[in-house]
C-alpha cells in the first residue's frame, strides 16, 4: 500500500500519471492502539504517578513480607523490652508492651489495606447493582430507590458508624459493615448516571435496532464503557475507607485489642507521644505514604482513563 517508495528513475517519468489503483488514500499512519494500551501509555507518562505506584507496590509487598524479614512475632509481650528506641535488635523500637514495632507496623498496614479493599469492594458491588437496577427499571422504582439513597446519604457518616459499632460491638465484620453501610450511595448514583447516558447513546440504540438482547447490550456495550469509571471509583474509595477506618480506630470505636490496625497504633502512639515519639511517627508515616500513593495513583488513573483527554 505504501507508494512512498515510488521514485522517479528517469527524468521523462516525472510527469507520467501514477496508476490510480496504487494510490491508497485511506491509510492510517498512526499506530494501532487500543483503549487500555493507550491508557497505560498515558499513565506511564506521569512520572510522579509511576513513582507512587512503585511506593504502593513496595508497601503492599512489605505488608506481606515485613514480619518474615524481622523474624519476630507481633503478639508476644516482652516485659523487659518496653518502649525501646530503635536499635539493632528492634529496628524501629518497641511499644509499651515490648512488642516489635517494625513487625507490628506492617501487620497493622496489612489489616488496614485488607479492610479498605474489602469495604471498597462491597461499596462497588452494592453501588453497581443498586445503580444499574435504578437505571434499568426506571419509573416509580427508580424514584423510590433514589429517595432511599437520598435518605441514607443525608445521615452523617461518622455518627451512623459510631452508633452501629456501639450497638453491634467491635470486630472485623462489624467494622466492615459500618464502613460500607453508607459509602455505596455515591457509587450507585454514578453508575445510574452513566448507564442512563450510555443507554441513550447512538451505539446502544444501534445495537437495539440490530435486535441484540438486553444481556448482549449490557455485556457488550454498557459494562465495557462503565469499567473505566468503576476502576476510578475503586481507586478513590480505597483511601477514603482507609481514612474512615483509621479515624474510627483512633477514636477507640474501631478495632479492639488484640485486633489492631494503623489506626489503633496511632491511638497508642499518641498517648505516649511526648516520651516515645517514634511510636506515633512510624504508623503515621506509613499511613500518609499509603493514602498519598493511592490518591496520586487514582488521580493519574482518572487522567489516563478519561476519554475526553484522548486525542
Amino acid at each position: 500500500m505504501n507508494t512512498d517508495t515510488v521514485s522517479i528513475k528517469k527524468p521523462e517519468d516525472r510527469f507520467a500519471f501514477v496508476d490510480q489503483d496504487s494510490l491508497y488514500a485511506d491509510e492510517i499512519t498512526r499506530k494501532n492502539i487500543g483503549f487500555w494500551a493507550d491508557a497505560a501509555r498515558r499513565f506511564k507518562q506521569n512520572k510522579v504517578a509511576m513513582f507512587f505506584l512503585i511506593v504502593l507496590v513496595l508497601l503492599i509487598v512489605m505488608s506481606l513480607l515485613g514480619p518474615v524479614i524481622s523474624g519476630k512475632d507481633y503478639i508476644t509481650i516482652n516485659g523487659q523490652d518496653k518502649n525501646m528506641a530503635p536499635c539493632s535488635q528492634y529496628w524501629l523500637g518497641t511499644d509499651n508492651m515490648g512488642r516489635d514495632l517494625f513487625t507490628r507496623s506492617w501487620v497493622g498496614l496489612r489489616t488496614s489495606l485488607v479492610i479498605a479493599l474489602v469495604a471498597a469492594g462491597i461499596q462497588l458491588v452494592v453501588g453497581c447493582l443498586y445503580g444499574s437496577i435504578m437505571a434499568t427499571l426506571g419509573g416509580i422504582v427508580d424514584d423510590v430507590m433514589m429517595r432511599i439513597v437520598e435518605v441514607i446519604s443525608s445521615i452523617p457518616n461518622l455518627i451512623l458508624c459510631t452508633l452501629l459499632l456501639v450497638v453491634f460491638g467491635n470486630g472485623y465484620v462489624q467494622l466492615l459493615f459500618a464502613l460500607s453501610v453508607t459509602s455505596w450511595t455515591g457509587t450507585a448514583r454514578l453508575v445510574r448516571g452513566q448507564i442512563l447516558k450510555l443507554r441513550e447513546s447512538e451505539y446502544v440504540l444501534a445495537s437495539k435496532a440490530m435486535g441484540g438482547s438486553n444481556m448482549h447490550r449490557i455485556l457488550k456495550h454498557l459494562l465495557p464503557n462503565t469499567l473505566g469509571l468503576l476502576i476510578l471509583e475503586l481507586a478513590q474509595a480505597i483511601p477514603s475507607v482507609i481514612f474512615s477506618e483509621t479515624s474510627l480506630s483512633f477514636l477507640g470505636i474501631g478495632l479492639m485489642p488484640p485486633n489492631f490496625s494503623l489506626g489503633t497504633m496511632l491511638q497508642q502512639g499518641q498517648s505516649t507521644m511526648n516520651f516515645y515519639p517514634f511510636q506515633l511517627l512510624v504508623p503515621c508515616v506509613l499511613l500518609s505514604l499509603l493514602v498519598l500513593s493511592f490518591n496520586v495513583v487514582g488521580d493519574a488513573l482518572r487522567d489516563a482513563l478519561d476519554p475526553q483527554l484522548r486525542n
Binding site: 507508494t3 515510488v6 507520467a16
Partner: peptide, 14 residues
Amino acid sequence: FARRCELCMNVCLE
C-alpha cells in the same frame, strides 16, 4: 492532495 488526486503524477508524490 496527490494521493486523492485523479491526475496524480510521479512528481506529485515526490
